[in-house]
Amino acid sequence: MLKLNRIHHIAIICSDYEQSKRFYTEILGFTVLQEVYREERRSYKLDLEVNGLYQIELFSFPGPPPRPSRPEALGLRHLAFEVNNLEEAIFHLNEYRVITEPIRTDETTGKRFTFFNDPDGLPLELYEV
């Protein structure tokens, strides 16, 4: 049987590198591990750490094709981040003019959550524990 240890990283392609870099570092507060410009691909690769646990790779490529990104679109549904206090997290995002959906409650777990989008419309979720 295949033994997978954990998720190693999540890769995101953005349309405006500087805007997305600012969003993920200044607004979401991820730590930059490494930033590389790959001349042959005319592409940046930014490695971001999420609270010492996971890594997000943020890529820029010239002219990436659009992709449906609503949570109900086929493929990856969304990326969820755990938070301790949903209201505080929403307040922080709203201070940066990031629009969040109304708070919902998970019917199975009773936990509260909300969705918002990154600069390219990628659906992101805050899930309160």
Rank of each mutant, 00 (worst) to 15 (best):
E87K: 15
E82V: 12
G63E: 14
G110V: 10
L58F: 02
G52E: 08
F81E: 04
P64T: 13
E39S: 15
I27R: 01
G52P: 03
I103H: 01
E72P: 00
L86H: 09
N51Y: 01
P123K: 11
H8A: 14
Y54F: 12
A80H: 03
F113L: 13
L79N: 03
L122M: 08
T100K: 06
N5K: 13
I10R: 03
T31F: 01
Q34V: 06
P119C: 13
V83I: 14
H92A: 14
Y44R: 09
L2R: 10
I99F: 07
V32R: 09
R38I: 15
H78T: 07
E87H: 15
L46D: 04
C14G: 09
R104E: 11
H92K: 15
L58D: 03
F30R: 02
P66W: 10
P64I: 13
Y17W: 05
L48M: 11
L76D: 00
K45T: 13
V129I: 13
K111Q: 13
V36R: 14
K3P: 00
E49Q: 12
I99S: 13
R97F: 14
E49W: 00
I103L: 02
C14N: 09
L74R: 11
R70H: 09
F23N: 01
L53I: 10
E88V: 10
F61N: 09
R112M: 10
Y17P: 02
S15K: 14
R6H: 14
E88H: 11
L53T: 09
T25G: 03
I99Q: 14
F113Y: 15
E35I: 13
